[in-house]
Design a binder for these strands. Structure first.
Lengths: 199, 199
DNA sequence: ATTATTTCTTAACCCAAGTTAAGTAGTTTC
DNA sequence: GAAACTACTTAACTTGGGTTAAGAAATAAT
């Protein structure tokens, strides 16, 4: 099951041939380790309790990553779209069962590479190791940013900031999910939006 | 200004001679790069806007790390005690101005090493690089954990969890700071504690 | 087109946290 | 020991989110 270039997002190709600067041969080798995976809307790429041993690139589609509390309520940590990498970082790195659910919000086409394959190829192509580490750092800072946001901003401020910084999200994601991401219930978001109309 | 062994926390010695498994000579070399720094109570090790170029180990004392929002309210991210490393990770890694304030809650004695010295010695002693990376991973997962907690637990649940997992904190830290850490105002914490007495 | 399903809004009520300000207790300082 | 400062609590009031349930609107399925 080989992957043809025409089936790979241009952004993926650009990332590894230009930013990571793999040679043509290195890129071919790298890609050869990937496998396509389809996750239909509403299905799960990953569930809490599972241990991940692969990383996935979203070639097409979108997903939401959430945890579930004791009472069965879902809490969305983030959304992912084309050109994002999804998975449970903690499970991937520690090899222990994860706490995250990753569910397709739209039909997803993923490009997946197993952890062992990735580690193998890192030895041959050191740039990939470096890229992976940087990716990890960025993920950390994104999480830190989320934490700061949630501590320093009111729900209303978080809503306005999301609207300003990521307006496209509102065109693709149901408001109930956005409410969960903001940390409030759908009726609260509804009330808030009404409140803000008068401003 | 040399550091004598008797002046270094046994935990620090144990960490690097046993867990990181440095040889006697390596340890001596490593320690020689450190410099002592004293931060009196209420003074700042770091302020938002500054760019850090060192890491600090708390040999003695405690600190709080917080951000400040637009309205001037402080939001405590975490507390640190003996045997913890403090600083602004994001500023340290990206070399850009940080958003964190690190203030001594008790008189602090720190062991500090500059970023450049640490990078130099990493080349000579690769175990240190590995240790540092692991430290970074753990920091990430701690942040993730905080985010999950704050999203899935109510203030009361967060309070009870803190009380259960870190009861010693209540013996060393003013309740107003704990309130900030939990994400509520001091009167709310006070009311909550009163409420919980009847249970 | 009709039905079914999903998504969003609204209303009513409750409750907990925010806010402000006052007051108490404990500690430090001189 | 009095004054000053800090930490904590309490009260009164406001505000905004949670909850539940019902209904409206939009979308998908048949």
């Amino acid at each position: 099951m080989q992957l043809y270039r025409s089936e790979i997002s241009p952004l993926f190709i650009e990332l590894f041939t230009e930013k990571v600067a793999l040679s043509e041969a290195e890129f071919e080798l790298f890609v050869s380790y990937f496998r396509r995976e389809y996750i239909p809307r509403k299905f799960f790429y990953l569930k809490a309790g599972q241990t991940t041993n692969q990383t996935a690139y979203i070639n097409k589609g979108s997903s939401r990553t959430f945890t579930m509390d004791d009472k069965g309520n879902e809490h969305i940590m983030h959304f992912s779209f084309e050109d994002w990498w999804i998975g449970d970082l903690q499970s991937y790195h520690t090899g222990s069962p994860g706490r995250m659910y990753v569910q397709a919000m739209e039909d997803c086409e993923l490009l997946c590479i197993s952890k062992s394959d990735f580690e193998t190829i890192q030895i041959r192509i050191p740039q990939l190791k470096e890229w992976h580490e940087q990716k990890f750092h960025k993920a950390h800072f994104a999480t830190l940013n989320r934490l700061v946001e949630i501590k320093t901003l009111t729900p209303e401020e978080r809503y306005l900031q999301l609207l300003e910084k990521h307006p496209h999200i509102f065109q693709r994601i149901p408001l109930q999910y956005i409410a969960s991401y903001l940390g409030i219930e759908p009726p609260s978001l509804s009330r808030m939006r009404k409140r803000l109309l008068g401003k």
